[in-house]
Design a protein around this nucleic acid. Structure first.
Length: 251
DNA sequence: AGCACA
């Protein structure tokens, strides 16, 4: 019964490679541009846990491959199992544990030893520009730009009765099989959205509006399916600085 | 196919 997915080399622990916080992915579509590839990988894998880094290179020897570094092995394992053969840019991903420890992990470990790459004499006076960009989002959060029909109280200025009393007229949320997605990074592609939303039943299509970056419409077969996808992906961290905000599209 | 840290 247990069909052994002997996917010709796409193994993992069966390969003699032991679990690692980093997963190694190959069979990636080599046409995808690096930056987009990394963002999409981040989008698709961050559901399994905190991602420390996504690495991919375009050198001949390394194209079609990427490394995703998780914070813990459990996340990596879950990602490996759940996303094995996941159709990504039209090709099923092949995932294994990485063979060696990632630098970012070794650095946290204290076990990092710089490999010989370029003799930069001794230590390089590397500046610690701790530019921790916390919540630098000056307009990205669910604040001012929030969709009027979103959860929570709408701004007083947008009450239906212009200059009326301070009575909060709750906006009625009308379910719709089409979702309205906001706060996307401006370089989000329909493909990235498709990969996220197609995980939920009834997915039909994701469309973006050329003229308006940052928003998208995602259509499902019915309202129930749309609702399930909405709650699953609400506030999904699609990038370091972007939480997706999802509401029903207006009818 | 291909396991790196630009």
């Amino acid at each position: 019964m247990s069909g052994e997915a002997a996917v010709g080399g796409g193994g993992g622990e069966a390969n003699g490679v032991q679990p690692n916080v980093t997963i190694y992915i190959n069979n990636l579509n080599e046409k995808t541009k690096l930056e987009e590839l990394k963002k999409s990988l981040n989008a698709v894998f961050s559901q399994f846990g905190k991602i420390l880094e996504v690495l991919a290179f375009k050198t001949l020897k390394h194209k079609g491959q990427a490394w995703v570094v998780f914070e813990d092995v459990a996340s990596a394992t879950e990602a490996l199992k759940r996303m094995q053969d996941f159709p990504f840019y039209d090709k099923p991903m092949k995932i294994q544990y990485a063979k060696t420890k990632s630098d970012v992990v070794a650095k946290a470990d204290g076990t990092f030893v710089p490999r010989e790459r370029r003799k930069r004499t001794d230590e390089k006076p590397e500046k610690k520009q701790k530019r921790e960009q916390h919540h630098d989002v000056s307009q990205g959060t669910l604040g001012m730009n929030a969709y009027p029909g979103a959860y929570g109280a709408p701004p007083l200025s947008q009450l239906p009765f212009g200059g009326g009393p301070k009575v909060m007229m709750p906006e009625i949320i009308v379910p719709n099989n089409i979702l309205f997605v906001q706060n996307l990074p401006h370089d989000t592609t329909p493909m990235m959205l498709q990969m996220l939303f197609c995980q939920y039943q009834g997915f039909k299509e994701a469309r973006m509006i050329e003229a308006k970056p940052g928003i998208a419409f995602v259509e499902y077969g019915d309202e129930g399916q749309a609702t399930a996808a909405m709650s699953a992906l609400q506030n999904f961290k699609i990038s370091k600085d972007n939480l997706m905000l999802i509401t029903y599209a207006k009818k």
